[in-house]
Nucleic acid binder design. Structure first.
Length: 893
RNA sequence: CGGGCCAUAGCUCAGUUGGUUAGAGCGCCACGUUGACAUCGUGGAGGUCACAGGUUCGAAUCCCGUUGGUCCGACCA
């Protein structure tokens, strides 16, 4: 025996992954089998493997491997997302550090060249890391959202939406990220409560140096962009002010006092400064009153020279704010400053405070896109797991706002819209949307009526599309569904299940459903499995800044991929957050070791033609039959767990079966004596059982199961675990299982008795059973007596009529057992123990009697429930009687 | 302000259409090592199922309320 006492995953995992790949097991091409398709949620091309990816991809791999074992054509498409804003930031950083270049120093073309260089060098690391996890993706299908074909699909859908009138360009108040210098969609802005100050500032009435209106604001640096002060028309305090002019502090520019219902009389002073360029609501008020828009903040967040208060021009908005306090104090306009808690929006990517900004951007009109996507989920054509996410989804879908899809970046699909060079950048009367410049020119000539226009007269939109405006096509594009709708797309689409974190339900899931109905008239997937967030033990989200995220690769090294997969899955009910703890991976590693040592045990046995004795043969036959029945029962549960995506339940069910039933019970039942052989039939049955078990566990723990599969028997070339058929769940003989359960209970009680009485595990004991019909029936089961004798380590097991002296008794089921001890027993202690048991049984019986004496229960409850209660009562009464007898014979008081 | 989800053992969670005086893993305690595994074995302790009502023959499970937690959205001068 040269198998190590510990399972060593590192070598095994690398070897089997290479083997699987070389045999092409991950490859999928359409054939006549039923397809089972998953598209990976494409990680950012810049990404490195973290806990969330490991959880997410383990789940996908489990589903794919199960489908493969079920004989389906399993196809898992991997790939990456170009992640425009995140990647562009990285490339800019890299250029500055490595090439000493600023983005503004180079052309768009040069930048893109560098970006692709960067992507080829550093991008897609994560896909290599996924292999270490065991992910059985079809790598030949690896896709990227900026691949040529994919790029074209994005452009094509843009043009399509534009032509259908579902895409427009408009001047709107948008979320501006001054750090990335781009606009963001509403979903990319995260709101959080933050500590701030409320400045009370007095605007003096024109012609007066003490009368005026005090307003409250958080942003004193924006007062120079004010165009009015607004009050509520019903507010008596200010009624006489409306229509008069007040002066902006420090610059004395006069602005009108206006009345608008929007103003809340209760809040602050009831007077509000109107700054249309820097606040959504102010903008709307301004529109109603035909006020001008003064924008004093530049794209980088600094105060620009529209601001006529010169000391703050050129300063960052926050720096400018700091300067305002002393300045306003000096001028006497500052009334007071209050502490104030308010919700601040920050960019999801850069964490910069988002600036509301009036800007010309492209928007998708969501009115017609939302309806079918909402319906599909409510009708469960697309089914969510757990279903509670339906509510979240509905809530959002019923309040859809138009989607801003232009971004002021270079890395991404450039917006296919052209303008006339002769027109300025801010007032294009002509917009030509087309798949390419030539087509755009054609349209331009027609629209302008000028056949002499040349390509040089046109200028393409500088912006690119939101990354989600490409990833929403992912399930369609990876199968080339736009160009070849009758090709592979037809076979693989709609995909079976999408596995993703619930945090991108709006960013991605909802939009994929919308895109699929809009462009393909059908759903993109049948089921959506939402994973929770991976958190640390203190429930904090794992993040780089907290440093609480374990190094994924180190975990894989420390515990093996199977151990980590176990650790992630064992606490990962769908949708629920998982509180990650190394301990869980340790459990997984220990489980691998358990499996490994079961193998070592079995492989160490010598075989003999027949069993040593009839008794052993009967015992072993019963054991093997029982385990098979139990396995059938377990498989039925596991199949149900897979069907309902209760993967962690399924894994734990198998874990319990393997550790307890297979290792602790079955192997102990059949284990031959020291240096004795096992009969060939039992040995073969055991290898068969273990092989089946290993296949059943394979989706969860692919590496060790493949290794065990090959260690158990010599397998021919291509006879690998990964391509077996999943063992079929058959019916299970509950009566037989029940009998062995009874035997296990007897054995456990004897072990307890040994523990309580300091009797060594291997000292043989004499066990007697009170003769009776149920005892006779139990021991009539062939092999059962031998099983109890072996595992309880008995020298004798017999049925008796009378209670022996010097014996301790226990009740198992409805049978009374005596363990004969060769020593005086402590009568008082024994009596106390029986008394305790008696109290419990009496309480038990009382509660059942309560039910059964209730006529309404007997009349209304289903007959089988009533029958079961009667049986429980009879058993309870029988046990009480036996306990009473024991008390009598012991002479308890 | 509106909405969702949650509250079960020391911890993390199961408990599927209401039906065994509630289960698992970890942790804890006791005992145990020539014979697969100490990354182990055997056994044990540990819960008024957040609180208060209601429906029902019967509630951890269904309904209402309260409290606490958490998330989402709106508003936010």
């Amino acid at each position: 025996m040269d198998l190590s006492t510990r399972y060593n995953p590192s070598e095994t995992e690398e070897r089997w992954y290479a083997h699987w790949e070389s045999r092409g097991y991950f490859r999928s091409v359409p054939d006549d089998r039923e397809p089972f398709t998953i598209v990976i949620p494409p990680p950012n091309v810049t990404g490195v493997l973290h806990m969330g990816h490991m959880l997410n991809n383990t789940i996908q791999d489990i589903l794919i491997r199960k489908a493969r074992l079920d004989g389906k054509n399993a196809c898992w498409v991997p790939g990456t997302d170009h992640a425009s804003i995140a990647t562009e930031a990285k490339v800019v950083q890299w250029l500055r550090k490595e090439k000493k270049l600023r983005k503004s120093d180079i052309s768009r073309e040069q930048f893109m060249e560098y970006a692709y260089q960067w992507k080829d060098k550093y991008g897609g690391i994560i896909l290599k890391q996924l292999r270490k996890l065991g992910a059985s993706c079809d790598w030949d299908r690896t896709a990227f959202t900026m691949d040529k074909g994919y790029y074209d699909d994005v452009i094509r859908t843009f043009v399509d939406l534009y032509r259908k009138g579902k895409l427009y360009r408009g001047l709107r108040m948008v979320n501006w990220d001054p750090e990335a210098k781009t606009v963001l969609s509403n979903e990319e802005v995260l709101h959080n409560e933050e500590q701030s100050h409320l400045f009370y500032i007095k605007y003096l009435l024109e012609g007066s140096d003490n009368e005026g209106i005090t307003i409250a604001t958080q942003r004193p640096e924006t007062i120079f962009a004010d165009v009015a002060v607004a009050v509520n028309p019903k507010d008596d305090r200010y009624r006489n002010m409306v229509g008069k002019m007040v002066r902006i502090p420090l610059i004395d520019r006069p602005i009108p006092v206006i009345a608008d219902d929007y103003v809340d009389v209760e809040f602050g002073t009831g007077a509000l400064k109107i700054t249309p360029a820097h606040d959504q609501n102010d903008y709307e008020v301004g529109q109603r009153h035909n006020l001008e828009v003064l924008d004093t903040i530049a794209d980088d967040g600094r105060i620009n020279d529209v601001c006529t208060y010169k000391p703050i021009v050129g300063l960052d908005r926050f720096e400018a704010r700091k300067q305002m306090q002393p300045a306003l104090e000096a001028s006497g306009n500052l009334v007071k400053i209050e502490e104030y808690t308010t919700s601040i929006g920050r960019s999801e990517r850069t964490n910069a405070v988002v600036e509301p900004k009036l800007s010309l951007q492209w928007f998708v009109d969501m009115t017609s896109l939302g309806a079918p996507a909402l319906k599909a989920v409510l009708d469960e054509q697309v089914k969510f797991y757990p279903p509670s996410f339906q509510n979240l989804y509905r809530n959002w879908m019923e309040n859809l706002r138009d989607w801003c899809i232009s971004r002021q970046l270079w890395w991404g699909q450039r917006i296919p819209a052209w303008y006339l060079k002769s027109e300025g950048p801010s007032k294009e009367t002509f917009v030509f949307v087309a798949s390419n410049a030539d087509e755009a020119l054609e349209i331009a000539r027609k629209d302008t009526g000028n056949p002499n226009l040349g390509i040089d007269d046109l200028r393409q939109d500088e912006d690119v599309l939101d990354t989600w405006a490409s990833s929403w096509l992912w399930p369609i594009s990876v199968f080339d569904g736009f160009n070849k709708p009758d090709g592979e797309f037809k076979y693989y689409y709609p995909t079976n299940v999408l596995v993703t974190g619930w945090d991108i339900i709006f960013f991605w899931v909802a939009r994929m459903i919308m895109a699929s109905f809009e462009f393909k008239g059908q759903k993109p997937f049948k089921d959506v499995y939402f994973t929770g967030m991976v958190r640390d033990k203190q429930r904090r989200k794992m993040s780089k800044s907290l440093g609480n995220s374990p190094d994924a690769l180190k975990l894989l090294e420390d515990f093996g991929a199977d151990g980590v997969r176990y650790g992630l899955m064992s606490s990962a009910a769908a949708g629920g957050d998982i509180l990650f703890d190394d301990k869980l991976c340790e459990n997984g590693r220990n489980f691998c070791n358990k499996l490994w040592n079961a193998l070592r045990l079995i492989k160490g046995w010598q075989q003999s033609e027949t069993a040593e004795s009839e008794e052993i043969a009967r015992k072993n036959a019963l054991a093997a039959r029982w385990l098979r029945e139990k396995f059938n029962q377990v498989l039925t549960e596991v199949e149900e767990d897979f069907r309902t995506f209760r993967l962690s339940e399924g894994l734990l069910t198998l874990y319990g079966f393997i550790w307890d039933d297979f290792c602790s019970w079955y192997l102990e039942m059949i284990k031959p004596g020291y240096e004795q052989p096992i009969d060939r039939a039992t040995y073969a049955a055991t290898l068969d059982l273990y092989s089946d078990i290993v296949v059943a566990l394979h989706p969860f723990m692919p590496f060790i199961t493949e290794e065990l599969w090959h260690q158990l028997r010599d397998r021919s070339e291509g006879d690998d675990c990964i391509v077996q058929r999943y063992p079929k769940a058959g019916t299970s003989d509950q009566s037989l299982i029940g009998k062995v359960e009874a035997a296990k209970d007897i054995i456990a009680r004897i072990r307890d008795l040994r523990n309580q009485n300091q009797i060594k595990p291997r000292d043989p004991l004499v066990l007697q059973v009170q003769d009776g019909s149920s005892a006779q029936a139990l021991f009539a089961q062939e092999g059962l007596r031998e099983m109890v004798v072996k595992l309880a380590v008995l020298s004798e097991l017999s049925l008796v009529d009378t209670e022996p002296a010097n014996a301790k008794s226990f009740i198992s089921g409805t049978d009374k057992f005596y363990v004969v001890l060769n020593k005086e027993i402590d009568v008082a202690a024994e009596c106390a123990k029986i008394k305790e048991e008696l109290d419990y049984q009496r309480g038990f019986v009382r509660s059942i009697e309560g039910k059964l004496s209730n006529e309404r229960f007997v009349n209304n409850a289903p007959p089988e429930i009533v029958e079961n209660e009667r049986k429980k009562l009879a058993d309870g009464l029988e046990r009480i009687q036996m306990l009473e007898e024991s008390r009598k014979s012991l002479g308890c008081s």
